[in-house]
Design a binder for these strands. Structure first.
Length: 1027
RNA sequence: GGGUGAUUAGCUCAGUGGUAGAGCGCUUCGUUCACAUCGAAGAUGUCAGAGGUUCAAAUCCUCUAUCACCCA
C-alpha cells in the first residue's frame, strides 16, 4: 500500500489522540521502568471558564515536550491536569447566562444556594471546553486525574467528588490556628461592579486622558505666610503672601475624606505653616472641615505644588501616610462606589471630624469608618457625578487656582500675544485644570474603575511565612529559570504585603468561620474557625453550655435581629450586643469566599490527595518542574512556595521554568481589543497541531518574547511533510520491510555514508538531550530540524540511493538497516515536539511492539558511534559535490547534463574517498567520468577540494571572463580569511596566550586556505593565458 | 520616577571571548521515479553609537541613543 504524499493532520490527529487515551498511555507511571525516578508536572490550572489562547498553547506545548520526553525515557511520569474555579470570572459568566433570558431570576433574587446550583450546572456543561482544546494540541495529561479546586465542595453534584475543597478548608483552619490568618480593616482594590475585593492581578492599569485640578486649601482663621520659591542656588524666583496652600488632585471627590495635607519635611516653602490647620474647600460653608498640615517623606517637592492631600481611605499611598501619621481614614463610598448615604447627617459627622483634627479626641478604626463625611447634597451620587459637583462648587466659590489662559499647563494652544499681532486680551484668569494622561486601575473582568476601599477582609500574614520561600530560592533548593526572573521573585517577596484572601462572592470556598454572640459579653461577635459546621457548632456549644439552642441563621443581619428580639437592648445595627441570657443563640457563617489563588496556591499537594498520605503524594511530590508565564511569578509561584512550606514544610517543585509571552508578528501583545489574536485552534485546523507546536518550541528562546507569524508555522508544517516523504522514500525502498533487521546492539556499518550518518545521529541525540536538560527548547527543536532536513534528507537519503541500488546485497541490506535505524531515531526524537505525525509514521511504517508515545528514547553514545574517518570522508565528498554544483550553476551548465571531470593532485585519502563514493558523487553532481591529469586543458573550470583540484573541461561552454570573475570572488573571500589568520598567528602574544587547540586550529585552517589559494591562482593563470 | 531586558541580513530571531548564523522572504535555474508543502545555486551585515578590558569582543565593563515590558 503506497503512502500518501502528505500527512493528513485533520484526519489523523483525533484518531491518534483517541488511541493514546484508550491505551492509557498518559496515565501516571505509564511506560515507567522498574524503580524509575519520578518526573511530575502540575499544569498551571486554566480557568474553568477559559478557552485555549496562544499563551496556553505555548505553555502546554513546553510541558508536553518535557513530559513525553521523560515518559519515553522510562521515568515514572505524571502530568497532572486540572482547572481552577475562577471565582469572579465564573460567577460573571453564569450571571450573564442567566441574564440572557429575562424570565430567569437574577443571582440576588434566587439566593446563594440556588445560584451555586446554577454554577455547578454550568460547570458540568461548559467547564470542560479547555480540556477538549488541550487534547487537540496533543497534551498528554493524565486526564483520569483531572482536578478542580472546588471538587468535593458541600453542594457539589455527582461527578465532582474529590477532596480539594476539604484540603483548602483544612489549610485555612490550620493557618488560622497558627495565627497566620487574621481579619482586619485594610485598603484593598475594590471592584464596584462585582462589589468585591479583588487582587492586584485582576487590576489592569491603563493610561487614560485625565485631568489634574488645582485647588486652594485656605489656612484656618485667615492665617497667612510668605510663599517663596528659590532656584538651586538659593536665588528667589517668586515670592507672594498667601492665605492658602495649593493642592493638585486627579480625584476631587475624594477631598471630602481628606484627613490631612502633607508636605515633604525638607520643603522650605511650607515650613512656616506645618502644624497649622487648613480648610477643605468644599462642603457646606458653616461646617467647613479643617485638617492639619503635616510632614511626610511621601510628597515629592518637585511634583505639582509639592503638597499632597491625604485621603487614607481611598488611595494606597495616602493610606500609608495616614498609618504613619495617625491620620483618620474616612470612607466616602458604598460597595457600589456611590457616595455614602448612611450614618449621621453631615453636620454631625463634620463636627466629630473637626474635634479629631484639633486633637480633642481620637477615633478607633471602626469609629472612623462609621463617620460619613459626604455632604448631604452629594449623598447617593455616583462617584463621577460627585467629582463634577465638587469641582463646580469649589470653582464657583473662587477656590480653584487661577492662571492666565496662556499657562502651558493648560495644554491648550494660547491665543497669540498682542505683540505678535493677536487681539489685545483682558487678563481674565481661568481655573488651572491640567489635561494629562493618568494611570487608572480597571477591573480586568468588570472593566470599571477600581476603587481603593477600606473594608474588613481576611488576610494571610505573609511576613510570617515568606522566609522559607525566599531561602529555598536563595540556596538553590528551588531553581528559577531564566536566572533573572529570580530578581522579580525576590523583589516581590522581600517587599511582601499582607495577602487579602477574602472575596465578597458566592462561588468559591466559603470561609470556615462562624460567628456567635460572645458568652462572656464583650463588643464583637465571637469567632469560631472550624473545618465544618458541626465542629463549629460543637465548639460554640461548649462555650454557651450543653443545652443552648444554637440557631443557625443566614447572615449577620438576621442574627442581630434575632438577638434584638430576644434581648431587646441593641442600639447600633451591625455593631455590638451583649445579651444578658438569651435562650436561643444565633450563629451565622462568614459570607465571604476565599480568593481563587488561595486554593491554587495548594495546587501541588491538593491535586495529589493531600491531606491524605496518598501514594501519588509520595511518588510525585515535590514535583519536578513548574512551567509558567512570567506574569504570574508573584501571584502564583510565590504563593505556592509560601503555602507549601507553610502547610507541609516542603518545596512544591524543584525547578520553575518561566517562559515569555506570545505576541503577534509585529510584537504587539495579543488582545481582543486590538483584534490581533491568533486562535491556536484555528492554526491547528490550518496547519496541524504538530506545526503549531514545533513553531512554538523552535521560538522558545529562554526569556524572550516570541513573535508569531503564520509564515513561520507554514514553514514547520513543510518540515513535517519533508519528514513524511523521507519516510515514504524509505518505505518504497523496503527499508521497513519485515526482512530488515532492527538493530539493537551498537551498529557498526561498513559503508562510509552509513557509518557517517550513524555518528551524526548519535551526536544529535546527545545535543537534544543536553538542550532539553537545560530547558533550551529552541536549541533542541532547531537542532533536530537542521539534522533531519539538512543532514538526513539533503545528504543521507541521496547517498543511500546508489547503495540501495547496489548489486551487492550485503551493502543493500546494511543500508536498509541503517536507514531504518536513523529514521526511527528521527521519529523518536521528534515525537515530543511533533507527536501526531511521528506516531502516524511509526505505526504506518512497520509492525511495532508499542506505540511511539511509549517508544524507547535513544541513548546512543557519540563517543562510540562517531567514526572520525567516515566523517572526514563525507565532509570531503560534500564539499566536492557542492563545489561542482556551484561551478555548474554559475557557468550555466544545464542541470540535467552529465559532464566529464578531471582531477589533479589527488592524494591517497582523496583517491580512496573518490573510489568509495564515485557512484553517489556522480549521481548527485551529474559527473560522467573522472580522469586524473597533470594539467587541465584550457577552458577548464576548477574546483579546489582539500589538496586536490577538480576541473570541468567546459571549453566553448564557458565565458573565460565569467570564470575569472567567479574565481576572483572566491579569492577575495579567501584572502580576507588568510589575512585574519596570518595576522593572529604572527602575533606572538596570540601564540603565547591562546589555548593550544585554538592556535593549532588556526594553523590548520591557514594551511587549508593557502592550498585552495594556490589552486585558484593556478586556474586564474591558465585562464589569463587563454584570454 | 524605580527596575528589567532588547538593539545582529529585507523580516523574525539564534548566537556566554576564538573564521558572523538559521528560518522566512528575494533573484536565477530546475517537475531526474521521496517530497513543488520540493530541489540546486545566489545576493544581502559599520552585530545601535562612543569609549575601555583582552593576544582576541556581537559576546565582558562604562557611557549615550532608541524601543519594549514590569512596578510605582
Amino acid at each position: 500500500m503506497a503512502m500518501d504524499k502528505t500527512f493528513d493532520a485533520k484526519e489523523a490527529e483525533a484518531r491518534l489522540y483517541a488511541a493514546w487515551e484508550e491505551a492509557g498511555c498518559f496515565r501516571a507511571g505509564a511506560n515507567a521502568t522498574d524503580g524509575a525516578e519520578s518526573f511530575s508536572i502540575m499544569i498551571p490550572p486554566p480557568n474553568v471558564t477559559g478557552s485555549l489562547h496562544m499563551g496556553h498553547a505555548f505553555n502546554n506545548t513546553l510541558q508536553d515536550i518535557l513530559v513525553r520526553w521523560h515518559r519515553m525515557r522510562g521515568h515514572d511520569t505524571l502530568w497532572q491536569p486540572g482547572q481552577d474555579h475562577a471565582g469572579i470570572a465564573t460567577q460573571m459568566v453564569v450571571e450573564r447566562e442567566l441574564a440572557k433570558d429575562s424570565a430567569n431570576a437574577t443571582r440576588r433574587e434566587m439566593g446563594r444556594e440556588a445560584f451555586l446550583q446554577k454554577v455547578w450546572e454550568w460547570k458540568q456543561q461548559s467547564g470542560g471546553t479547555i480540556i477538549t482544546q488541550l487534547k487537540r494540541l496533543g497534551a498528554s495529561c493524565d486526564w483520569d486525574r483531572n482536578a478542580f479546586t472546588m471538587s468535593g465542595a458541600p453542594n457539589a453534584p455527582e461527578g465532582e467528588e474529590g477532596n480539594f475543597h476539604d484540603a483548602v478548608i483544612r489549610v485555612f483552619v490550620e493557618m488560622y490556628d497558627k495565627g497566620l490568618i487574621y481579619r482586619g480593616k485594610r485598603l484593598v482594590n475594590w471592584d464596584p461592579h462585582f462589589e468585591t475585593a479583588i487582587s492586584d492581578l485582576e487590576v489592569e492599569n491603563v493610561e487614560q486622558p485625565g485631568h489634574m485640578w488645582h485647588f486652594k486649601y485656605p489656612l484656618a482663621n485667615g492665617a497667612t505666610y510668605t510663599y517663596v520659591e528659590k532656584d538651586a542656588d538659593g536665588n528667589v524666583l517668586f515670592e507672594e503672601e498667601r492665605d492658602y496652600i495649593s493642592i493638585a488632585t486627579t480625584r476631587p471627590e475624594t477631598m471630602l475624606g481628606d484627613g490631612a495635607v502633607a508636605v515633604h519635611p525638607s520643603d522650605e516653602r511650607y515650613a512656616p505653616i506645618v502644624g497649622q490647620l487648613c480648610e477643605i474647600p468644599v462642603g457646606p460653608k458653616e461646617h467647613r472641615r479643617q485638617i492639619p498640615i503635616i510632614t511626610d517623606e511621601y510628597p515629592d517637592p518637585d511634583f505639582g505644588s509639592g503638597a499632597v492631600k491625604i485621603t487614607g481611605a481611598h488611595d494606597f499611598n495616602d493610606y500609608a501616610v495616614a498609618k504613619r501619621g495617625d491620620i483618620p481614614c474616612y470612607r466616602l463610598m458604598d460597595t457600589a462606589a456611590r457616595m455614602r448615604a448612611d450614618g449621621a447627617p453631615y453636620a454631625e459627622a463634620a463636627e466629630l471630624a473637626m474635634a479629631v483634627a484639633k486633637g480633642e479626641r481620637g477615633l478607633s478604626e471602626n469609629e472612623a469608618d462609621a463617620v460619613n463625611l459626604v455632604p448631604d447634597d452629594l449623598r447617593g451620587l455616583d462617584r463621577f457625578e460627585a467629582r463634577e459637583a465638587v469641582v463646580r462648587q469649589i470653582t464657583d466659590e473662587g477656590l480653584a487656582v487661577m492662571v492666565p489662559p496662556t499657562d502651558p499647563r493648560l495644554g491648550t494652544k494660547p491665543p497669540a500675544a498682542p505683540e505678535e499681532g493677536g487681539e489685545p486680551r483682558d487678563e481674565q484668569l481661568v481655573p488651572l485644570v491640567e489635561s494629562k494622561p493618568i494611570m487608572q486601575p480597571f477591573g480586568d473582568r468588570s472593566k470599571v474603575v477600581i476603587e481603593p476601599m477600606l473594608t474588613d477582609q481576611w488576610f494571610v500574614d505573609t511576613t510570617k511565612i515568606v522566609g522559607p520561600a525566599l531561602d529555598a530560592v536563595r540556596d538553590g533548593t528551588v531553581q528559577i529559570l531564566p536566572e533573572r526572573d529570580k530578581k522579580v521573585y525576590f523583589h516581590w517577596l522581600e517587599n511582601i504585603e499582607p495577602w487579602c484572601i477574602s472575596r465578597q462572592l458566592w462561588w468559591g470556598h466559603q470561609i470556615p468561620v462562624w460567628y456567635a454572640p460572645n458568652p462572656s459579653g464583650g463588643a464583637d461577635w465571637m469567632r469560631v474557625c472550624a473545618a465544618s459546621e458541626a465542629e463549629a457548632l460543637e465548639e460554640i456549644r461548649l462555650l454557651w453550655g450543653e443545652d443552648t439552642d444554637l440557631r443557625l441563621v443566614a447572615d449577620e443581619r438576621e442574627a442581630a435581629e434575632l438577638l434584638q428580639d430576644l434581648v431587646g437592648n441593641l442600639t447600633d445595627e451591625g455593631a455590638i450586643r451583649q445579651p444578658q441570657s438569651p435562650s436561643i443563640v444565633p450563629v451565622f457563617r462568614d459570607p465571604d469566599v476565599l480568593d481563587t489563588w488561595f486554593s491554587s496556591g495548594l495546587w501541588p499537594i491538593g491535586t495529589l490527595g493531600w491531606p491524605e498520605d496518598t501514594d501519588a503524594l509520595k511518588r510525585y511530590f515535590p514535583t519536578s518542574v513548574l512551567v509558567t508565564g512570567f506574569d504570574i511569578i508573584f501571584f502564583w509561584v510565590a504563593r505556592m512556595m509560601m503555602m507549601q512550606y507553610a502547610v507541609v514544610g516542603e518545596r512544591p517543585f524543584d525547578t520553575v521554568y518561566v517562559h515569555a509571552l506570545v505576541r503577534d508578528e509585529k510584537g504587539k501583545k495579543m488582545s481582543k481589543s486590538l483584534g490581533n489574536v491568533l486562535d491556536p485552534l484555528d492554526l491547528i485546523d490550518e496547519y496541524g497541531a504538530d506545526a503549531v507546536r514545533f513553531t512554538l518550541s523552535a521560538m522558545a528562546a529562554m526569556g524572550r518574547d516570541l513573535k508569531l507569524s503564520k509564515d513561520r508555522i507554514a514553514g514547520y508544517r513543510n518540515f513535517g511533510t519533508k519528514l513524511w516523504n523521507a519516510c515514504r522514500f524509505a518505505e518504497m525502498n523496503g527499508v521497513f520491510g519485515a526482512d530488515v533487521p532492527e538493530w539493537v546492539a551498537t551498529p557498526a556499518p561498513t559503508q562510509t555514508a552509513n557509518a557517517w550518518i550513524v555518528g551524526e545521529t548519535a551526536q544529535i541525540r546527545a545535543e537534544t538531550d543536553a538542550a532539553l536538560e537545560q530547558f533550551r527548547f529552541n536549541d533542541a527543536a532547531n537542532g533536530l530540524y537542521a539534522f533531519v532536513w539538512g543532514r538526513v534528507c539533503d545528504w543521507y537519503v541521496e547517498f543511500a540511493k546508489p547503495l540501495l541500488d547496489s548489486e551487492d546485497t550485503a551493502v543493500q541490506s546494511e543500508t536498509r538497516a541503517t536507514m531504518r535505524w536513523v529514521l526511527d531515531r528521527c521519529l523518536l526524537m521528534l515525537h515530543p515536539f511533533m507527536p501526531f505525525i511521528t506516531e502516524e509514521l511509526w505505526g504506518t511504517l512497520a509492525e511495532r511492539d508499542t506505540m511511539l508515545v511509549h517508544g524507547d528514547w535513544p541513548a546512543d553514545d557519540p563517543a562510540q558511534l562517531v567514526n572520525e574517518d567516515a566523517a572526514r570522508e563525507m565532509s570531503w565528498v560534500i564539499s566536492l559535490i557542492e563545489g561542482v554544483r556551484s561551478a555548474r550553476a554559475q557557468m550555466r551548465v544545464p542541470a540535467g547534463m552529465h559532464v566529464a571531470m578531471l582531477v589533479s593532485g589527488l592524494d591517497a585519502a582523496g583517491r580512496a574517498a573518490w573510489e568509495a563514493n564515485a557512484a553517489l558523487i556522480s549521481r548527485t553532481a551529474r559527473i560522467e567520468t573522472l580522469d586524473e591529469v597533470d594539467t587541465f586543458p584550457k577552458g577548464t573550470v576548477t574546483i579546489p577540494v582539500g589538496s586536490a583540484t577538480f576541473g570541468l573541461p567546459l571549453e566553448g561552454l564557458i565565458d573565460p571572463a565569467e570564470e575569472i570573475a567567479r574565481l576572483e570572488k572566491q579569492k577575495a573571500k579567501l584572502s580576507k580569511e588568510i589575512g585574519g589568520l596570518e595576522g593572529r598567528l604572527k602575533n606572538p602574544k596570540f601564540v603565547e596566550s591562546a589555548p593550544d587547540e585554538v592556535v593549532e586550529e588556526a594553523r590548520e585552517n591557514l594551511a587549508a586556505r593557502q592550498e585552495e589559494m594556490t589552486a585558484i591562482d593556478a586556474a586564474l593563470d591558465r585562464l589569463r593565458e587563454l584570454g
